[in-house]
Structures are given as C-alpha cells and as structure tokens.
Design a protein around this nucleic acid. Structure first.
Length: 235
DNA sequence: CCAGACGTTGTT
DNA sequence: GTCTGG
DNA sequence: CCAGACGTTGTT
DNA sequence: GTCTGG
C-alpha cells in the first residue's frame, strides 16, 4: 500500500511538468509525508462560466473525508482506496466520477519486520522510479465544517495488488497514471467511472532500497531519509 | 418505505 | 490491545 | 504508515 | 450523497 511517502518537487517544477495554471497552495518539500499531512496534488477545477477546466496545484489533507461525513475524525483511515472496488464503494464512487487528482511524489515507503538483537524492529524501504517523478493516482473530496462553514479538502491514494517484483516487500502498491492519460484522468467532465478506470496503471520497474529507521518517526524529515543505508537486512 | 452504513491496512 | 496524533 | 498514549481526583 | 438491510 502506501502509508508514507516523499515529495520534494518545487512549485516551479510542478508548474512546468503538469501545466499548472493556478497555484492554490504552493508545494512544500517533505521526505516524510504521513496520513493527515497536507500533500501536493494536481486537479482540474471547472470554472463557474464553464470554459476549459483550470489546472490547479492544491494541498489536500491526506485521508479522504467524504462530503457526507458527520465529522472529520475518520480522516486517517481512508488514506488508500482499493482500485478493485472504488467504483462501487460509497466512500469513493463519487470522487472517482468527478474528483480525480494526481499526487506527484519522489517515491514511497514500506516496512518489513526485522529481528535485531533479539527484538523485532520495523525496517523501512524506499520504492521509487529510476528516474522522474512518481505520479500517483488519487481521489479527492470537499468536506464542509458544520459550525464555521469552512471547506476542507482531503485526498486518498489508489492502490492495487503489488507486482511480483514488489510482493516480497508488501502485497499492495500505489497506482500511477501515464503522462499521456493525465488530461483525461483529471477532466471532471468525463464522469463515467468506466472511462476513468482503464487509465489506472501499474508502476513499472521501481527501484527498492533499505533506508534509515529515522523515517519511522514522523517528526524526522530531510533528504537523508531516502538515502540507501549500507546495512541491507534480509527479508 | 426508513434507518443506518459508508474504509483500508495489517495482524491474528 | 486499541486508539490518536503526526 | 509508525509512535505513543491510554486517567481521575484534589490540591497547588 | 447513495446504497444496503430490514
């Protein structure tokens, strides 16, 4: 699955790569993004006067809160949405039809148990493309706070069964969208979920290496978190 | 019809 | 063991 | 995802 | 909001 990731591209990088027209929230580099954190996301917003959609850089909280939720307390739970069932699950189907986004990342983390000095510790791994950004498929939702009327934007990352190459690390992995399909994936006017689903792609040829357990603690951050560590433990 | 749920992950 | 916070 | 907390009363 | 269960 995907429960922690790194995203360090600058706002300028993302403007160039995705053709961003409006920056609602600038990108903030982080090498330790955790559930409930603001994460970078690209979406196409429909203008009120119904022209072409406006490609916008936003910063939703990670963990989708459906618009009908009574309170936002479940946010840390819906950090992933299973590709196999998003079209029929009530928490996601509306977002799949009309609120799809892209989440640009450097790569993501997974953990495996490891015995060290007789104790079991959680060994983190960093999974990432050999070059370029890892553009994850996401869904978003708007939730309105009853008291203040303030709007809260949240998002989730779509997952699928891990490929054999990654299965020894974890049985789930995030899905991507190929650059040629970005426009269609983001277009909120394409409301047929059956048109959107085939755009979901499986990550190919990811590189995997062990990283420091410093990433386990969410307070830690910095580019050193994604660096390989010499002591590569057996799985 | 109304009431109530609506999710993923890992672990056991 | 299970929930909350980050 | 992992780490860390998990509670009440009365008194200061 | 929308679907399922009763």
């Amino acid at each position: 699955m995907c429960g922690r990731f790194a995203a360090s591209a600058s706002t300028e990088d993302l403007i160039d790569l995705f053709g961003i027209e409006e920056v609602a929230d600038p990108a903030v580099a982080s090498y330790n993004l955790a559930p409930t954190d603001p994460i970078p996301a690209v979406l196409d917003r429909l203008e009120a006067d119904a022209g072409a959609p406006m490609r916008t850089l936003v910063s939703p909280r990670w963990g989708l809160i459906p618009s009908w939720a009574k309170d936002p307390s479940g946010a840390a739970r819906l950090i992933n949405a299973r590709a196999e069932t998003i079209a029929t699950k009530r928490s996601f189907s509306g977002s799949l039809s009309r609120r799809r986004c892209l989440i640009p990342a450097d790569g993501y983390y997974e953990w495996t148990p490891k015995v060290e000095s007789g104790r079991t510790v959680k060994q983190p791994w960093f999974l990432h493309p050999r070059e370029g950004l890892f553009v994850m498929a996401g869904l978003y939702a708007w939730w309105r706070e009853p008291g203040t009327g303030a709007w809260l934007l949240t998002a989730t990352i779509i997952t699928t069964q891990a490929s054999d190459a990654l299965g020894h690390i974890h049985d789930r992995m995030p899905m991507t969208i190929a650059p040629a399909d970005w426009d269609a994936w983001l277009d909120p006017r394409l409301t047929e979920s059956q048109c959107a689903l085939p755009l979901l792609a499986t990550p190919e040829d990811l590189s995997v290496h062990a990283v420091s357990r410093a990433v386990n603690r969410v307070a830690n951050n910095g580019p050193e978190l994604v660096l390989p560590v010499a002591d590569v433990p057996a799985t």
